[in-house]
Amino acid sequence: MRTYDELVREADTVSVDGWDFSWLDGRATEERPSWGYARLLGERMAKARAALDIQTGGGEILAGLPALPPVTVATESWPPNLRLAASRLRPRGAWVVADDEEPRLPFADAAFDLVTSRHPVETWWAEIARVLAPGGSYLSQQVGPWSVAELTEYFLGPFDGGHRDPARAREAASSAGLEVVDLRSERLRMEFRDIGAVIYFLRKVIWIVPGFTVSRFAGKLRALHERISAEGPFVAHSARFLIEARKPDGEIGSPAAG
């Protein structure tokens, strides 16, 4: 059995660039949503003329699709992810655009008949409505309320994690002039089987424990290591929701876009 110090050293130095979690294989598990986002995305992309993927990460999801539209654009803000996305997507004929995490999207009105995003930090509904062509759709899998709250509360104590409510997303989409045609949510079991998996996850998914570092939480990490060693995996639950919204035919721009 590997020691605590060995597990910590490895997990604290391995690269966390991109949005590939294969490093956790055998060390952590997470149930997948029943709707199959990658499958749905592939179906929508195969029918689209021009598509935009917002906050694409390292481009992993798009790069794994069997077909991309004739015009495919992906945006990303973090430089290490930009490089990964470009290396994966440019050979597929897609454009990768550096963009910050604030609106306005650097695209013309009604430029895309499909806009997508997986786990966006924030959804810019008015901008999405603006760049969608009439009859176009937005498809997104998002993080739901109190996702992985067990891990957050272990390190930080009670918190208000309810701001990612799917009902709020529906209201925001409607306010931007979009019609929500699908909205589903699920809670999914997660298991962390060693302390290295916890550290890697928190370094990569930085909003679960904001400001996380090994040195800052050394005492709690060691205590959690001892707990996992004695009792088995640390169990948490992620929250995910799927939302699909359509822009009505004949509508250019969005009332909320100004």
Score class of each variant (00 low, 15 high):
188 L>A: 06
102 E>H: 15
122 E>D: 07
155 F>D: 10
194 D>Q: 07
187 R>L: 09
212 F>W: 10
65 L>T: 12
12 D>E: 15
127 E>P: 06
90 R>G: 01
126 A>D: 15
240 R>T: 09
40 L>W: 03
230 A>N: 10
2 R>M: 12
182 D>S: 09
190 M>D: 14
206 I>W: 07
237 H>Y: 15
171 E>W: 02
27 R>E: 11
25 D>Q: 11
129 A>Y: 05
6 E>G: 09
97 V>S: 05
179 E>D: 15
125 W>E: 03
163 H>G: 00
241 F>Y: 15
223 A>R: 12
158 P>M: 05
120 P>K: 08
36 G>V: 04
193 R>V: 00
62 L>H: 03
108 A>I: 00
40 L>I: 07
217 F>I: 05
257 A>L: 06
27 R>S: 06
236 A>N: 05
156 L>M: 15
149 A>L: 06
118 R>G: 06
81 N>C: 07
88 R>S: 02
39 R>S: 10
255 P>L: 15
9 R>P: 00
184 R>T: 04
89 L>N: 11
253 G>N: 14
69 P>Y: 03
104 R>S: 12
118 R>Y: 03
258 G>E: 14
70 P>Y: 00
148 V>I: 07
80 P>E: 02
187 R>K: 13
104 R>L: 10
111 A>T: 07
82 L>E: 07
128 I>A: 05
225 H>T: 00
215 S>D: 14
61 I>M: 14
80 P>N: 02
98 A>L: 05
97 V>W: 08
258 G>M: 14
173 A>E: 06
95 W>P: 00
213 T>P: 13
134 P>R: 01
113 D>Q: 02
106 P>W: 13
29 T>L: 04
174 S>C: 04
233 P>V: 14
255 P>H: 10
63 A>P: 04
157 G>C: 11
121 V>L: 13
87 S>V: 04
26 G>L: 02
96 V>G: 09
230 A>M: 04
141 Q>A: 08
9 R>F: 03
13 T>N: 11
20 D>R: 13
191 E>F: 06
100 D>N: 13
158 P>W: 13
258 G>N: 12
14 V>E: 04
47 K>I: 00
223 A>C: 02
8 V>T: 08
81 N>G: 08
164 R>E: 03
62 L>W: 05
33 P>D: 07
236 A>E: 02
78 W>L: 01
131 V>W: 12
56 T>L: 01
45 M>N: 11
12 D>Q: 12
122 E>W: 05
255 P>Y: 14
172 A>L: 15
27 R>W: 00
118 R>S: 14
40 L>P: 10
19 W>C: 11
144 G>N: 02
151 L>S: 10
18 G>A: 05
128 I>C: 08
217 F>Q: 05
242 L>P: 11
156 L>A: 13
143 V>G: 14
89 L>H: 15
1 M>Q: 11
208 I>F: 09
219 G>V: 03
15 S>E: 12
63 A>H: 12
6 E>V: 07
69 P>N: 13
41 L>I: 08
115 V>T: 08
239 A>K: 11
42 G>R: 14
77 S>D: 04
81 N>H: 12
45 M>R: 05
173 A>L: 01
49 R>W: 00
59 G>Q: 09
127 E>A: 12
212 F>C: 06
7 L>R: 13
55 Q>F: 03
123 T>M: 15
60 E>P: 00
164 R>D: 06
